[in-house]
Design a protein around this nucleic acid. Structure first.
Lengths: 133, 133
DNA sequence: TACTCATATGAACATATATTCATATGAGGA
DNA sequence: TCCTCATATGAATATATGTTCATATGAGTA
């Protein structure tokens, strides 16, 4: 709105403003990259993956499963990490939904483990990153 | 409390309950891993790193910087991603605080780029993970 | 079938966070 | 010095999320 009023006093500015509201943009940069940027859906999926790992409790769960190189039942996980059973179960569900862990039932117990080595790779790379600072 | 009342009718149960509230724990599992689990501070740092990558807007910023293999000024980034200048700046600050991007000033403009190849590695590994499903 | 136990889940609450709007900062130019 | 412009930032708001509490589910067992 402030712009509009200013424009009426300067026709030269009007033309430019109709094309682009801001002056600082480098059109050649935009043109070059505009169609190569990650698709919004993919960005959402990727963000969801990282978001899932973006909680200290879930990190500790993943860490436990990573060092066990095997599986834990919910109850042991809760005890190991000092969490309530409910909190543990809720967080395991989040990890499950993102396919970061898998599980199987054995009688009354449910055992969880990392879904694949990819998860381990991501986790280790993250660990490396924070260690180098 | 429900436990307490039950306990008074069965002394055998009392003893066990005083040691451990839950029955399903495997003590040998706990003992074996209890002292090897990631330190809480480290878990927080690692979660913060992933949390920073856990937002679609920041993912798209990182993606743009990754494919440019160079730098963008704030204004170009905003235009490229269809974001407001303010939102872009706020998110760049988050990325800066987590040391995922670096920047330098040139006159009025500020140019941002990925901080190091580690970030790129993490990003790519995440991409791989979601592509394989 | 009735009971116990391991796990899952829904609701509620407190906290964190992404965006917008308005404004501040600070560099370059007239 | 005053103005413009690129960027940064604070406040406010809407939304997402982690934990707890209470309860449900569902497998084993008497």
């Amino acid at each position: 709105m402030a712009d509009k009023e200013l424009l009426e006093t300067d026709n030269n500015l009007v033309a430019e403003s109709l094309i682009c509201e801001v002056e600082c943009i480098h059109p050649e940069v935009i043109d070059r990259f505009a169609n190569r940027i990650i698709d919004v859906n993919q960005a959402n999926d990727l963000a969801d993956l990282f978001k899932t790992l973006g909680d200290p409790t879930r990190i500790r769960i993943v860490d436990a499963l990573a060092l066990a190189k095997g599986e834990f039942c919910v109850c042991d996980l809760a005890e190991l990490l000092g969490l309530s059973q409910s909190a543990t179960s809720h967080q395991l569900r989040v990890l499950r939904n993102s396919k970061l862990v898998k599980f199987h039932r054995e009688g009354k117990m449910v055992y969880y483990s990392l879904d694949d080595d990819h998860v381990l790779g991501l986790y280790r790379q993250g660990l490396e990153h924070i260690s180098e600072r």
